[in-house]
């Protein structure tokens, strides 16, 4: 259908919003599909009452107490889930005394806090805050933290994590694939003890015991492996003249979800460009925000007090089939050096 224009409207989306109106994008397919822009006389979030399940949610994940926080035999805790993805928090503080293999799905570890090593079939990888670690389904691994106060957000997906098609902006955009780290083989061949592999399927554990260390891979080849990228190596694209939709910040795709990384960046400076907040009904997705660092607040920032930079790093998981959940963790001054630099 040719785009229709009715009443008071802006000729271009996100530019030259009519005086006294609030633009809201009503769109399909996560900012790729059909859309309409509604010009409201009031902010769409200007409610005075909200009843029922559709209300925005906020969770203080620091209060979760997964059993792996104090017990090396413990496990992460799940706090949200649907048919496509399940979100867990792990606070593992001690090396796992067993190996783990997830047959229920692929896993994406986001390291919010902590340093250490993760041993895998393909070899070990070190980890540090800001790391995304992709663990394909059924990879055998073991987390060996070096620090005590650790925090991992784990996204378990029914389908694998892929990189987005970067289209017209080219494959070096967002991050150069050269910053991806993959493990080198490092077999544990001199480990003369029994090892248990715990395999999770349908949320139940099966246990396999070997008289040797099962991470005995002396070499590997192929295009299916463990890999990682750190958030600091993601360089967001931006436009000073036009608001870019959240999909411009996509880092991973699955069949049922999108993971985006929002990093410190200048905001729009053109006099006519839409400022945040960007009101939208992303009707085919629900959104979960996890605040990693910084002082940006999606919902409280206004044109009156807006700063010219987003001084924060956070990720969103946009999950196909519609849920929008926000999680905020503020560290008011922690990104100041980033801004100053």
């Amino acid at each position: 259908m040719y785009p229709l224009k009715k009443g008071k409207f802006a000729p271009q989306a996100h530019v030259g919003i009519p005086e006294g109106t609030f633009e809201e994008e009503h769109g399909r397919k996560g900012f790729y599909g059909k859309s309409a822009h509604l010009y409201h006389a009031h902010p769409p979030t200007g409610w005075i009452r909200f009843e029922g399940k559709l209300r925005p949610h906020l969770f203080d994940l620091n209060k979760l107490a997964p059993s792996d926080c104090r017990d090396a035999e413990g496990v992460p805790v799940a706090f949200l889930g649907n048919d496509d993805v399940t979100l867990y928090v792990s606070r593992r503080s001690q090396p796992m005394p067993f190996y783990f293999r997830n047959a229920d799905g692929d896993e994406l570890y986001f390291v919010h806090r902590g340093k250490g090593i993760i041993e895998t079939d393909f070899g070990p990888l070190t980890f540090e805050p800001g790391d995304y670690i992709v663990l394909p389904r059924a990879v055998t691994y073991r987390v060996i933290p070096e620090t005590q106060d650790n925090f991992f957000l784990i996204i378990q997906s029914r389908t694998e994590f892929d990189q987005p098609d970067k289209g017209l902006i080219g494959h070096h955009a967002l991050y150069d694939p050269g910053v991806i780290t993959t493990p080198e083989p490092k077999p544990n061949l001199d480990d003369n003890r029994e090892w248990e592999v715990r395999i999770k399927v349908e949320d139940e554990l099966s246990k396999v015991v070997y008289p040797f260390n099962p991470l005995d891979v002396v070499g590997w080849k192929g295009d299916l492996t463990v890999w990682k990228i750190n958030m600091r190596d993601i360089r967001p694209i931006m436009s000073h003249r036009a608001h870019l939709p959240p999909s411009a910040h996509t880092t991973f795709l699955t069949e049922g979800a999108v993971v985006c990384s929002f990093l410190p960046r200048p905001l729009e400076q053109d006099a006519e460009a839409l400022r945040v907040p960007f009101f939208h009904r992303n009707t085919d997705y629900d959104e979960f925000l996890f605040y990693h660092d910084g002082d940006f607040s999606v919902r409280t920032i206004s044109s009156r007090d807006m700063r010219r930079c987003i001084r924060a790093a956070f990720i969103t998981v946009r999950i196909r089939r519609r849920w929008r959940i926000s999680i905020i963790r503020r560290r008011p001054t922690s990104m100041r050096s980033c801004w100053t630099d």
Partner: peptide
């Protein structure tokens, strides 16, 4: 649960750490 087609569920652990009145914090302060 926020959708009727493939709903996401707040699991019991999530319910325990949810701030139930969060929605009200979006309202303009008078």
């Amino acid at each position: 649960m926020l959708d009727g087609l493939n709903p996401i569920h707040v699991l019991p652990a999530g319910e325990q750490v949810e701030w139930q009145e969060y929605w009200a914090s979006w309202m303009d302060k008078k």
